[in-house]
């Protein structure tokens, strides 16, 4: 990430110099750092709510119960986690919320799952484990049953049959979801 981050910034300055857009780049830098704060802070409320609910489920033992139930499936995808790991429940909830297009609920579950996986991380806590990378791959692939925001834009622009994009989108997102997990499984042997 060090090299990628540095490259993004250096390349930006080089292109800005060539294209005479240094002012735009500096403005983008100042403005975006502010909007990043807004994005992070807009997560606080929903995060607090779900973490509160999840805490109750954790204390009452519901999370353990659920994790035990889905252990066989999860064991296939997340090999290096503990048996009946608490992370399983939160991973399943993260996936379900994503699939239903509830991005607001998916993020807190996903973060909770990452925290659970971090607790099991036997190595340096700064280094991602295989399970963390797989969970991340599941999320970057962005599997969802109905792409609500895309549909909304199409309908607002007067599409005659906006719903016809649902099936093709579902096919594509399913393929990239499965390949994301497979690619992560293959690459984890290399890195």
């Amino acid at each position: 990430m060090n090299i990628i981050w540095l490259s993004l910034i250096i390349i930006s300055f080089i292109f800005a110099a060539i294209n005479g857009r240094m002012e735009e780049v500096v403005n983008a830098m100042l403005k975006t750092s502010q909007s990043a704060v807004m994005v992070a802070f807009s997560l606080i409320g929903i995060m607090a709510f779900w973490l509160g609910i999840v805490k109750i489920a954790q204390k009452s033992g519901l999370i353990d119960l659920f994790s035990k139930a889905i252990d066989p499936v999860m064991k296939i995808i997340f090999k290096d986690t503990k048996k009946n790991s608490q992370a399983y429940s939160n991973i399943a909830l993260n996936f379900s919320a994503n699939a239903l297009g509830l991005a607001n609920a998916a993020t807190p579950f996903g973060i909770k799952a990452m925290q659970d996986l971090q607790k099991e991380n036997p190595n340096d806590k700064k280094v991602a484990t295989n399970a963390m990378c797989t969970l991340l791959a599941m999320n970057t692939a962005g599997f969802q049953l109905v792409p609500a925001s895309v549909l909304a834009i199409l309908i607002a622009s007067g599409a005659t049959n906006a719903a016809e994009i649902i099936l093709p989108t579902l096919i594509v997102t399913s393929i990239s979801f499965v390949s994301a997990i497979l690619i992560s499984k293959i690459l984890e042997r290399v890195f």
Binding site: M1, Q118, D124, K125, V127, A128, M132, C133, L136
Partner: peptide, 9 residues
């Protein structure tokens, strides 16, 4: 969770 070494992610 403070991960900075992403490996293959």
């Amino acid at each position: 969770v403070g991960i900075t070494k992403l490996r293959h992610a």
